[in-house]
Write a protein that binds this DNA or RNA. Structure first.
Lengths: 121, 121
DNA sequence: CATCGTTATGCTTTTTGGGGAATAACGGCC
DNA sequence: GGCCGTTATTCCCCAAAAAGCATAACGATG
């Protein structure tokens, strides 16, 4: 009655995955980008956001550029100069993008959790 | 009655994703690895399989090593020397791994297709 | 009008993943 | 026993991605 000779489940193995939103020019939104957007929202500047997640400013800036360029509307509005040197704030589009991504993301986590259960190896 | 000012859907954008099976030492099975296993099954050798997908033998060999080392049982049995120089064949574990992955993979495709439909951006 | 921290951008260095070539060992088969 | 194509492994090189460094430019505020 043992179905197969193979020793059964491999304990340490699990199904993993990731999702992202792709635009005309490659990735538009992914986990890292969304976290970056949230930090920008919380800290009010790209550089502070980058520092807070130990990412280089240059990299963070490029990510924001990529997101802003792809959509019809920018996700981040940037101001140079002025009090405190300037800063950056989320647009309504940006806030909406974050919400959309998290929604898809959490549904996906749910799915993966459920699906991992009947993974037979 | 327009719900929001934002101009509506961004036409070119779509939800994408990928899945893989992770073992104690990183990736155990992914799309590329499974295709490689199938080629090994079809051609009877790692080098022919690698050639058929224009992958370097070195890379293919490493992937096989990674898979073989992680599981309780190897997925590929390799023979050096002999008629035709040797070769490689799938084990029962290997065949089962392929089937398991494709099952999860196709279910996942289904899910993504369905989920992409109500992605609002 | 000098200050200050931020955006903006170019240049150089480091890291990383993989390809290519070279070589040894192997072992049925003629 | 020599041949042959495969497994097994090492060393060097290349390209792409990201980090690090170094400056400009900016503009509200004191």
């Amino acid at each position: 009655m043992g179905k197969k000779v193979r020793g059964g489940r491999l304990p340490g193995f699990r199904l993993r995955g990731r999702i992202w939103i792709e635009g005309p020019d490659g990735t538009f939104l992914g986990y890292g980008r969304v976290v970056l957007l949230e930090r920008i929202r919380d800290y009010g500047s790209i550089s502070a956001a980058a520092r807070s997640m130990s990412m280089s400013y240059r990299h963070a800036w490029r990510l924001v550029e990529s997101m802003n360029r792809q959509g019809r509307y920018p996700v981040v509005e940037k101001r140079t100069g002025g009090r405190g040197g300037g800063g950056a704030v989320l647009t309504e589009t940006g806030r909406h993008a974050i919400a959309s991504f998290w929604k898809a993301y959490h549904e996906f986590r749910e799915y993966m959790l459920e699906r991992s259960a009947h993974l037979d190896l």
